[in-house]
Amino acid sequence: MNIRLTGLIAGGLLVLAALAASVALGKSMVPLGTVVDAFISFDGSREHLIVRSVRVPRALMAMMVGASLGVAGSVMQAISRNALAGPEMLAGSNGAALLLVVSMFLFGYTSSMIHVWAALLGAGLASLTVYVLGSLGGGMTAIKLILAGATINLLLASLVQGILIFSEQSLDEMRYWLAGSLTGGSMGMFLRVLPYMLAGLVIAIMASKQINLISLGEDVAQGLGLKVGLYKAGALLAVMCLVGGAVAIAGPIGFLGLAVPHIARFLVGLDYRWIIPYAALLGAALLLLADIGARFILPGEEISAGVVTAVLGAPFLIYLAQRKGG
């Protein structure tokens, strides 16, 4: 059997194991037998209610958010040909957060399609803005991308805080979400954005061959007859769906979309037909594990999964910036 296919199967098993652990582990430990019984013979007990209404939805959200951010980061790095590109560096996460906060401030906290579209549009516009700014003046470099991303990220974060300052209640309700948390994730919002996230994954996987060519350079891709503009637009659409959906559910989760593509490339090389599915599985598994860790790092307290990914990802970003600088 192809070693890459074997790795893909192993990655799927890892996701399933992390999914099971996420449902079973927490302040209240739930045996896996009880998890199965909660769906086969639900009896209304406290454990069954925890499994069905809290643990399983949270685990499914973590799986989809992690997969979406991993794939979005892979696509961004391919089309920009920059190892430092990602939902965080291209401000996609903060762009989605800004428009989502604006829509919640204006229309309330109900899980409406307005919030979904706000997150999707914010992710796309912010990423496009940073990409354009980083490409000005002789082409994109790692330093220009970092500067453009840092500037737009700071601007968007300041705007978010400025909006929230008008309402103390809004700030209290949004603060934990803005740290990147799956705790308060709405199942209603998850079901609303799930079709868009799945569409983004399908687009990325189906376009992986063309993304491969774009990653070699636009001149090479055009010389091989590829309509680069069309496929870049499709890639941006996929990123909008993936990042916007992820932020709508869990807030801006840091560094996952930056680090996962590098791990996938280390495992399977430079072929995006393999990198993208590997990134989906790795992203899902890593966010599930980060969310489990967030429950146990502080005794008696639970921190945001985004804090865990940030602590682990910040040294990785410093390493990449030093290696790719200029």
Rank of each mutant, 00 (worst) to 15 (best):
L121H: 14
L312W: 06
L5N: 15
W274L: 10
L16C: 12
M187R: 14
V160K: 01
L194Q: 03
G66S: 01
E168P: 12
G180D: 11
R175F: 12
F42K: 04
P87V: 01
G11I: 04
I163V: 05
A235N: 03
A199R: 05
A123K: 09
W117N: 15
T309I: 06
R81Y: 01
G26L: 10
I40N: 14
I163M: 03
G12C: 04
L100C: 08
Q169A: 13
L154D: 15
R52I: 05
V308S: 08
L282I: 03
A250W: 00
A78W: 02
G325K: 07
G306C: 13
R55Q: 01
M29W: 15
G73F: 02
L287C: 04
S80A: 09
A62M: 04
G234N: 08
A314H: 09
I146R: 07
R323T: 05
T151L: 11
Q222T: 13
A17I: 11
Q222N: 13
V36L: 14
G95S: 07
V239P: 01
I205Y: 13
H115W: 14
G138N: 12
V202G: 10
A284I: 02
R265D: 02
G223D: 07
A235P: 00
A238S: 07
G184M: 09
D219S: 07
A21G: 12
K227P: 08
V56M: 08
A285I: 04
L198Y: 11
A96F: 04
I263G: 02
A250S: 06
A97P: 01
G12M: 03
I292F: 03
A321M: 05
L100F: 08
I297L: 03
K324H: 15
P195I: 03
